[in-house]
């Protein structure tokens, strides 16, 4: 790294744009969280009441904890299941197994489909009456496997995780894949000459080079896990699905801030408080991860 004042010139344009359009509005949102305000009309400053309501109102805290739990459960799956899968997929494509060009496209492709269309696919596949899945199961005589899918409290959450994963797994994969292209090839060649197996070569030689992109993907996946909104909203509905199994923090935020589609009662102040809480949680996790990683890799 260099010591020079030149960084000011590089950072300033981005800093101004970002601060003006992202951080200033965020500042206002934090300010709203101390008010009882529908979004229209007068604002009444109520101090920390909104936050007290989230944590101590028996009903609200139950909803909040349930949503938070779902977010964390999803984050765990994203980090411990999806990321190893992403590394594996990227590696298989990197070492050019048969069909790697097609796989690269097809694994990423679902990400391209907008979430509203994904919701539409979910209807066509999982609807208990008209969906293809139940009809195929009935057709091949597996009647006992027929299910109400997203209406079944014991599997709805995992089903949603699969849909979200199917949709987004390609992103982490291309990030890791791009990193694999930076692995110095002479090092890899040397290990091949030394007679390392594919397995050894991957673990001992190549994986260490992937550290930066894996850290990226861990940080980004965690943030995305805690800000999940689109697909749960479109697939599970605004109220958090069967028995609240598909409820997430941002869904709760949206539901209370803007109300329901038909008869919305807006509560911008309370909604802002929810998003401030979510924001704080994510910030803590991001900082924690940063500390852990910099300690771990001594940077």
């Amino acid at each position: 790294m260099t010591k020079s004042k030149a960084y000011i010139g590089f950072i300033t344009p981005g800093f101004i744009l970002y601060s003006l359009f992202m951080i200033v509005p965020l500042g206002f949102a934090i300010y709203y969280s101390f008010f009882n305000w529908s979004g229209l009309g007068s604002m009444e400053c109520i101090g920390l009441e909104n936050f007290k309501r989230i944590f101590f109102d028996p009903r609200m805290s139950r909803i909040f904890n349930n949503a938070l739990g779902n977010n964390f459960r999803y984050m765990a799956i994203a980090v411990f299941v999806f990321i190893p899968l992403q590394i594996l997929m990227a590696y298989l494509i990197h070492i050019k197994i048969h069909g790697h060009n097609l796989f690269r496209l097809m694994i990423f492709l679902p990400y391209v489909i907008s979430p509203s269309i994904i919701g539409f696919f979910a209807l066509l596949v999982f609807d208990p009456n008209i969906g293809i899945l139940n009809n195929v199961l009935l057709g091949i005589g597996l009647n006992q496997l027929v299910s109400s899918w997203f209406g079944n409290p014991s599997i709805a959450f995992y089903l949603l995780v699969v849909v979200i994963g199917w949709n987004g797994i390609g992103v982490g994969m291309v990030i890791i894949l791009a990193n694999m292209k930076n692995i110095p090839q002479d090092v890899v060649e040397a290990s091949i000459i030394d007679g390392a197996s594919v397995w050894q070569r991957f673990w001992l030689v190549e994986l260490p080079f992937l550290e930066p992109s894996i850290i990226n993907v861990v940080v980004l996946s965690s943030i995305f896990a805690l800000t999940q909104f689109d697909i749960p909203f479109i697939v599970g509905g605004l109220n958090g699905g069967v028995n609240g199994k598909l409820d997430f923090l941002n869904l709760m935020f949206f539901r209370y801030t803007f109300g329901d589609a038909y008869f919305g009662e807006t509560a911008l102040g309370f909604g802002a408080a929810i998003s401030v809480v979510v924001f704080t949680i994510i910030l803590c996790i991001a900082i924690l991860q940063k500390l852990v990683f910099s300690r771990l890799f001594k940077r």
Binding site: F21, V24, L26, F28, A29, V219, F253, G271, S275
Partner: peptide, 24 residues
């Protein structure tokens, strides 16, 4: 800190900030 500052944008739903953003 600046690095973390630039990450903040991922952490909140843009919807909550839409009113001030509109004014800007």
């Amino acid at each position: 800190s600046l690095e973390v500052y630039f990450l903040l944008g991922l952490m909140f739903p843009i919807q909550i900030a839409i009113l001030p953003l509109f004014v800007i």
